[in-house]
Design a protein around this nucleic acid. Structure first.
Lengths: 169, 169
DNA sequence: TCTCGACAGTTCTGAAACAGAACTCACTCG
DNA sequence: CGAGTGAGTTCTGTTTCAGAACTGTCGAGA
């Protein structure tokens, strides 16, 4: 897949999914955000099988989402901590939790995400600095910044035959 | 997994991942946002194998992300369109694209997401209506809204032994 | 010294998900 | 009647996943 220019912009998604697009990576990142750093702690916290954790951590390190830093020697022990790229995944996590809150099957506990200082439920918005407004997903367009010498044609992302929903949000 | 109260809030993520946590579902949703509705069109656009598409669409419908509406009879033909819950996944898509843009391996074409009316690159922020400010991921806390009669204790999400990064964003 | 336990993995097994090609079935159009 | 379309299903592999058990290094304690 991803062969050919059939869906510009989906390519970025595919690239991201290649890194975190499995059942565990996002949960590992979340555990990392909660302060977990050691192999066995990830194991216990997530209930993930060890071989898979090994492999996932290796891949996350390889893609720059986490780093493996030694915290002792004799024997050498490493801990895994999120890089800036890893921490930058939190909007994704938040989007996931918010979606689950709003559109989940309504079963199980519900955790609302709030602004820590004041306790108000947060909103996740798209923000335009120039217009100084927040806006919903229908006002988004994709602009091709081009591969080194690609065709710089604009993509018609989410605006052509798009669903007629006006999600104000 | 997900047995026991070991990581409150991760549960919501797990629930969401159970619906869209595979290699294809998000891409299917994205195709839906781009206006694709028919089985074969999904096939061609994504390059997904037919049996998997069948199964994924079935599950997305089951979880209320898409609906299967007949658009003709003799023979009955259905099209799949996003429900409101499906459209509500766009923040997730955006977070994915943005992350890939900012922290991807820098290969392949880059698609920037912009505010359609003015063309400015959008930001995805957390917004507190009460404080009227945007803020980064470190100012987020999880509050347990409780399962029907669960223990309403507050979770200490992302604030205990949290990574010392201050991502201003 | 000998054992114990923590930590960070690896090596097996079997189960599930995935990919691709071919096939079905109902109907329409020429 | 035969070709074509849309929406699947049925095969057959291949890759990925999960779980249990095992390895290897070291520090502490009896």
């Amino acid at each position: 897949m991803s062969d050919g220019p059939r869906d510009q912009g989906g390519e970025a998604i595919e690239r991201a999914l290649r890194v975190i697009g499995d059942r565990w990576s996002i949960l590992i990142v979340r555990a990392g955000l909660r302060g977990i750093r050691r192999f066995d702690d990830f194991c216990d916290d997530l209930g993930i099988a060890r071989p898979i954790l090994t492999e996932r951590l290796r891949r996350l390190v390889e893609h720059g989402v986490m780093t493996k830093v030694p915290y002792q020697r004799n024997p050498v022990r490493h801990e895994y901590r999120l890089t800036e790229a890893g921490i930058a995944l939190s909007p994704l996590l938040v989007a996931l939790v918010r979606w689950s809150e709003d559109h989940g099957d309504g079963e199980g506990e519900t955790v609302s995400l709030v602004h820590a200082p004041c306790g108000t439920e947060l909103e996740q918005a798209f923000w335009c600095r120039a217009c100084a407004t927040t806006f919903g997903p229908t006002a988004i367009r994709g602009v091709d910044r081009g591969v080194p010498n690609g065709t710089p044609e604009a993509t018609e992302d989410a605006s052509e035959d798009a669903p007629e929903a006006e999600v104000g949000h």
